[in-house]
Amino acid sequence: MDKFKEKLAALREEVNAALARAETAEMEVKRLNDEINEKDHQITSLQNKVTLTEAELEKAENKIAETKLNLDEGETTKTVGEGLARKVSLLEAELETAEHNLRDTTEKLRQMDIKAEQFERKVQHLENERETYERKIEDLTSKYNGIKAELDETLKSLEDM
């Protein structure tokens, strides 16, 4: 009888440990989902920045094109031409900066995509683990119920004697 109680206590401890692991896994899944949502927001923000940078780049290219047209047409004087040349240099510098920012933003977006994929894989792995633990818990519960039924039958047969 004592051995049975010890086995029953051990099974309860295993069930409690499995429940604790399942709760830990669920908390981890929630945390990872929160991180994924945060990364999605960051990706959206970076995509908006890319769009704005592309618009600025287009404006800068348009300004450069206009400036070059004005220089080619020779409508301005030498002084105006020199001023426009300075503007072109500034716009080209802004263009370089915008292109650099675009490259950085694109790289960050790529890294975020990679991280998001890694988190998705980790979530899938954790969900698989959780399912495995749930199956183990179900197996242990059915074993427990079987042992309990067997104990009840044994006790009943002992009482009948």
Rank of each mutant, 00 (worst) to 15 (best):
A17W: 08
A18S: 15
L19M: 08
R21W: 03
A22T: 08
A22R: 14
A22M: 15
T24G: 11
A25R: 07
E26D: 12
E26M: 03
V29G: 01
K30V: 11
K30Q: 09
N33F: 08
N33I: 07
D34P: 01
D34I: 00
E35D: 01
I36H: 13
I36S: 13
T44C: 04
T44Q: 14
T44N: 07
S45I: 02
Q47P: 01
N48G: 11
N48R: 06
K49E: 15
T51C: 02
L52D: 15
L52R: 15
T53N: 09
A55M: 01
A55Q: 10
A55I: 01
A55H: 07
E56L: 03
K59Q: 07
K59V: 01
E61H: 04
N62V: 04
N62W: 01
K63S: 07
A65Q: 12
E66V: 06
E66G: 03
T67P: 01
T67F: 14
L69T: 08
N70I: 12
N70R: 12
D72R: 04
G74M: 02
E75P: 00
T76F: 10
T77S: 14
V80P: 01
G81V: 02
E82F: 05
E82C: 00
L84W: 04
A85R: 15
R86P: 01
K87E: 10
K87H: 08
V88A: 00
S89A: 14
L90I: 03
L90F: 07
L90D: 14
L91P: 00
E92T: 00
A93T: 13
A93N: 10
A93R: 12
E94Q: 13
E94P: 05
E94L: 11
L95N: 13
E96V: 14
E96K: 13
E96Y: 12
T97C: 02
A98T: 07
E99M: 07
H100D: 12
N101W: 00
L102R: 12
R103C: 00
